[in-house]
Simulated assay, not measured.
Amino acid sequence: MGYEAWILLTGSLVGISCGMIGCYLIVRRMVMLADAISHSVLLGIVLAFLVSQSLNSIYMLIGAAVIGLATTIFIQWLYASGVPEDASIGIVFTTLFAIGVILISLFAKDVHLDVNHALMGEIAFVPWNTIVIFGAEIPKATATLLGITVVTLLFIIGLYKELKITSFDAALALTIGLPVTFIHYLLMTMVSLTAVGSFDAVGAILVVAMFVVPGSCAYLLTDRLDAMLAISALVGVLSAVSGYYAALWWDVSISGSMAMMGGVIFLLTWIFSPRYGLISKWKKSSTPLKEQEG
């Protein structure tokens, strides 16, 4: 595969994994938690480096998963103590992210953990950092994201019914004996792993965009969860591919362009969605009530 193909594949894997996990955040009304985790995992990455003195992806994933889960727990504690949910999210993620930035400034000045890279990423450099797997040389970030995407698919397929019930009706899930709290934190762990797997390659901005935009587009296009998952993966890939070529055309940041094209796709979906789009709602509002009933 060529340089361009590796970038497109890497961006598409981010779109698929983040997009599908993001669907559950949307139906659970927890979208901003993705933003919180995507930023707070920086602290986990820094702590993993300080403890291991290595930039190995395994240590980074473990550190990010721990801090991502801790972020969820801290937010839940504050919310349970009476702090509004949005305020809880803002307090926890800004505090943890700030601690990560300070630790980078103090202990990792000469290491490739700068804040600008963490926010924007640099997917253009992905094809140059390679590893050999089964005799084939592939980009390290792409291999990591491929593994995370496979794990994400297995997670969704294996716990599809449990995730569906706990997402749409937690009370029913408790009634039939499902471990709602455990499934919730398991999902948050997957959010953390997916976020950090994408973090180094594409940065926090695109990670948040891919968690939110593909699922939001799918939410406007279907009422079925299985179709929503498939559509979100497709929108994630389309955002990555169109964003890459837009970046080439304008000579701008690839990650930023991918996030922007995701916004463009959402805008089009919001306008032209057959059932929930602006045009559809305008037609319904302008149609006489008798015709709608007929």
Rank of each mutant, 00 (worst) to 15 (best):
I271Y: 11
I265N: 03
P84D: 14
S38H: 00
A143K: 01
I157L: 15
Y276S: 06
V27P: 12
A5D: 15
M228I: 03
V51M: 05
C18K: 10
T94F: 14
I58V: 12
I26L: 11
Y3M: 07
V92W: 08
Q292G: 11
I91D: 07
G135T: 06
I62M: 01
C18Y: 06
D110A: 14
S255Y: 02
F211L: 10
I265L: 14
K140I: 14
I91M: 14
Q53H: 10
S280F: 00
S17E: 14
Y185I: 00
A204N: 07
Y276G: 03
G63W: 05
I62L: 05
A36D: 04
A209G: 01
I123N: 09
S216Y: 15
W282T: 00
I205E: 11
L61P: 05
T10E: 11
V202T: 13
Y160D: 12
N129K: 12
G22E: 02
I104R: 04
V46Y: 02
L55C: 11
V202D: 12
I265D: 06
S57L: 11
K281E: 06
M1N: 10
I99H: 01
I45D: 03
C18V: 10
A246K: 02
T130A: 14
I58S: 12
T152P: 15
S192I: 04
G197E: 00
A34K: 01
T175Q: 11
V46H: 05
A87V: 15
R28C: 13
S167Y: 14
L106M: 04
Y276Q: 04
D35A: 06
H184C: 13
I102P: 00
S255C: 03
G90W: 10
W77E: 11
A247P: 07
A218D: 14
L25W: 00
E293H: 14
S54T: 03
I21Y: 03
I148P: 13
L268T: 08
M210R: 04
I133N: 08
P179N: 01
L9P: 05
M188R: 07
A173P: 08
I131M: 11
L8N: 13
L113G: 12
Y160E: 15
S257I: 04
G2L: 05
G177R: 00
L163A: 09
V126S: 05
C217I: 15
L69F: 00
V191I: 06
F49H: 06
I104D: 11
N56K: 01
T71Q: 02
W128H: 10
V66S: 08
V207Q: 01
S52G: 02
G197H: 01
M30A: 13
G243T: 06
G197L: 06
Q76E: 10
R275K: 13
R28K: 15
I16F: 13
A227D: 09
L96D: 08
